[in-house]
């Protein structure tokens, strides 16, 4: 990882990804114990700085931190004194002055975790920034596929949905390509990012072609309120053309698995009966999220206590 921050999968190389996966495997074992706690980060402070509301990711980071014995503080500016009067960097530096050992940042605008990381001494972990990246989501998806398939290399991964606005899609396309998978994106033309094939993936507007031979089918949440009418005509039309059901899934490999970062829109991007049982692994993803975030926290915040080694240039 770049320094001790985790800002983007784009910045990581293969060996760093593999190291996180192997560390996650050890952390996953902790989660299966009677006492789900190890002293690894005892005495360290972790701040969840969530400028954008999120229950799932924040809870996952919180549980991960607590299983490592860190002191976890949640800071959600919407519920604090933060208004437009205090800028993001002022907020972050205020928290930094309280000497946290890691800061987990989510913001609705791409690039904010990077700007905060540039300004802070503490390691910064990106928990999702706009339509840029959501690195720990991609890592938990990698881990889940690795557990299911025993490998990443040579797999075909098809990501379906609103790629244009998806940080999950961006992080995943880097993560899976770097480990040797073929990544395909499928969406209506209005929801494919411009020049996306320059990132080393293939873009499809035919769901059938995108699914043929796929080992992994990954669905993205459609943000109905934001999109309908501008990027596609209606939810009904989207569900008909790109919603996944068992009939369309037949185009993929027989043993293909179905993934979704949640929260799911039943009947929109995924059929009701497909969401709850195999080949869906949606709840395994959630479970693995804790292990992967434990690994990331350990690797970012566990090596040198704060004050031990200061990053250069900060």
């Amino acid at each position: 990882m770049t320094g001790r921050d985790l800002l983007a999968i784009e910045d990581l190389d293969r060996s760093e990804l593999e190291r996180i996966l192997e560390t996650s495997l050890r952390m996953e074992e902790v989660g299966r114990r009677d006492v789900k706690k190890v002293p690894t980060l005892r005495g360290r402070t972790l701040i969840n700085l969530f400028f954008e509301p999120s229950t799932r990711t924040r809870t996952s980071f919180e549980i991960a931190g607590k299983r490592l014995s860190a002191d976890v503080v949640n800071f959600s500016p919407s519920s604090s004194s933060l208004t437009k009067a205090e800028g993001i960097l002022d907020t972050a530096m205020t928290l930094d002055a309280m000497d946290p050992d890691a800061v987990v940042v989510r913001h609705k605008v791409a690039g904010v975790p990077k700007r905060i990381a540039d300004a802070l001494d503490a390691p910064v972990i990106n928990a999702g920034d706009g339509a840029h990246e959501h690195p720990t989501q991609a890592l938990l998806d990698l881990f889940t596929v690795w557990q299911e398939k025993g490998r990443i290399d040579g797999l075909t991964v098809t990501i379906i949905g609103d790629i244009l606005h998806s940080r999950v899609a961006r992080s995943n396309l880097y993560a899976f390509s770097k480990l040797g998978a073929e990544v395909r994106l499928a969406a209506p033309p209005t929801m494919l990012p411009p020049a996306v094939e320059s990132l080393g993936v293939k873009a499809y507007t035919s769901l059938r072609e995108a699914l043929e031979g796929a080992d992994v089918v990954m669905l993205l949440r459609i943000q109905q309120e934001r999109l309908a009418g501008c990027f596609f005509p209606s939810i009904r039309e989207y569900a008909t053309a790109f919603g996944l059901d068992r009939r369309k899934l037949r185009f993929a490999k027989d043993d293909a698995i179905v993934m979704h970062p949640g929260p799911i829109n039943r009947g929109v991007e995924i059929a009701h009966d497909l969401a709850d049982q195999r080949p869906s692994v949606i709840l395994d993803q959630v479970r693995n999220g804790v292990a992967v975030r434990m690994a990331v926290l350990y690797l970012c915040a566990g090596r040198t206590p704060r004050g031990g080694v200061r990053r250069e240039g900060s």
């Binding site: 961006r170 990012p193 411009p194 320059s198």
Partner: peptide, 10 residues
């Protein structure tokens, strides 16, 4: 708009 906006997510 192009590869850069796609990479930045902006």
């Amino acid at each position: 708009e192009g590869a850069v906006s796609t990479r930045l997510g902006l």
